[in-house]
Simulated scan of single mutants.
Amino acid sequence: MDELTGVQALERLHPDLPMTAGHVLRREFEYLRHGTLSWFFNFDVVTGQVIEPSWGPTRNEEDCLAHLQRLITSDPAATKWHILVDNLNTHQSESLVRWIAEREGIEQETLGTKGKSGILLSMATRAAFLHNPTHTIVFSYTPKHASWMNQVEIWLSILVRKLLKRGNFRTLDDLKQQILAFVAYYNRTMAHPFKWIYQGLTVDV
């Protein structure tokens, strides 16, 4: 799971000039801004599909929790979830800990107080609780400065290159519909698991 925030609905003021012999497509630089949307995306590493995206004007703790709740309820038959995220504070929030504790039958009183004691003491203690492998929902965190290790980042770069970078969006709803249409098209025609091929460096000493 990862977020793509501040996605702008930019409407080009003039039509593109089409490709001709010896010339690439040319685009006028002027545009109108119609606002932004923040998105949450989930990439299923087994199927290569993007599932249950959500969007809204903000990306805060409440938005993150609502998105994850929507994701989990999308498959009631699933008995175990493994969710890979980066170290953003909303991925280790008090509300997320309280939700997981409620699902696991853990008394809220045992969680402590945010910033003072117990599981809620710090981001590190909250992350350790959320990473507990005995839970039905287990969060794993990419190393700091290595969020690229989350495969959804690869998919986000595809979305940017194939749609957002050259898109023309007349309204926020137009932006939303074009992104959802791209997700559906990608899932139907291009989705496949990403296979890491980089083997690392070997150094002779």
Rank of each mutant, 00 (worst) to 15 (best):
D63M: 02
I83E: 07
E3K: 05
L120I: 01
R170I: 01
F40E: 13
R98K: 08
W39P: 10
L156G: 06
Q151K: 10
N132D: 15
H91P: 05
S122L: 04
H145C: 12
L164M: 02
L84R: 11
D204K: 14
E107M: 05
T202P: 05
K195F: 11
D75A: 10
N60E: 02
L68V: 00
G118R: 01
T125G: 10
R126V: 00
L130A: 06
L180H: 02
E62Q: 14
Q49E: 14
L37S: 07
G115M: 06
G56S: 02
E102D: 11
L121I: 04
G115Y: 00
L164P: 03
F139E: 01
T58L: 15
V50Y: 02
G6E: 11
F182D: 03
I137D: 13
Y186G: 04
H67T: 00
T113F: 08
I72E: 02
F129L: 11
E30Y: 08
T142G: 15
A9S: 08
E109H: 11
K144N: 14
T20Y: 07
A66Q: 04
V160C: 07
C64I: 00
F139C: 07
A66E: 02
R188F: 09
R33H: 15
A128P: 09
V24T: 09
H14S: 10
F40C: 15
F29G: 15
E52L: 06
M19R: 13
T90G: 05
I51T: 12
P143W: 03
P143V: 00
L84Y: 13
H135F: 10
L130W: 00
V203Q: 15
E109L: 05
S54F: 00
E107Q: 13
L17F: 03
T73P: 09
V7T: 03
L164A: 03
F40Y: 10
T5F: 13
L25Q: 11
T73G: 12
L156C: 08
P143C: 14
I83L: 15
W81S: 01
H131Q: 15
T125H: 08
Q8K: 13
K165W: 04
I137N: 10
L4Q: 06
T20R: 13
N150F: 02
I119D: 04
Q49W: 04
I158E: 07
R161C: 08
R161H: 12
T20W: 03
K176Y: 03
V183D: 00
L96E: 00
H91W: 02
Y186W: 09
T189R: 10
H23E: 13
T47G: 09
N87D: 03
N89A: 09
F169S: 01
E30N: 10
I158T: 15
L84G: 09
L121F: 12
T171A: 06
L201I: 05
H14Y: 14
R59S: 14
A124P: 07
E107G: 06
A191M: 04
I119L: 12
A184R: 07
S93M: 01
T79E: 14
M149E: 14
Y198V: 04
E61L: 05
I51P: 06
A21F: 11
K165E: 12
T113I: 04
N42F: 01
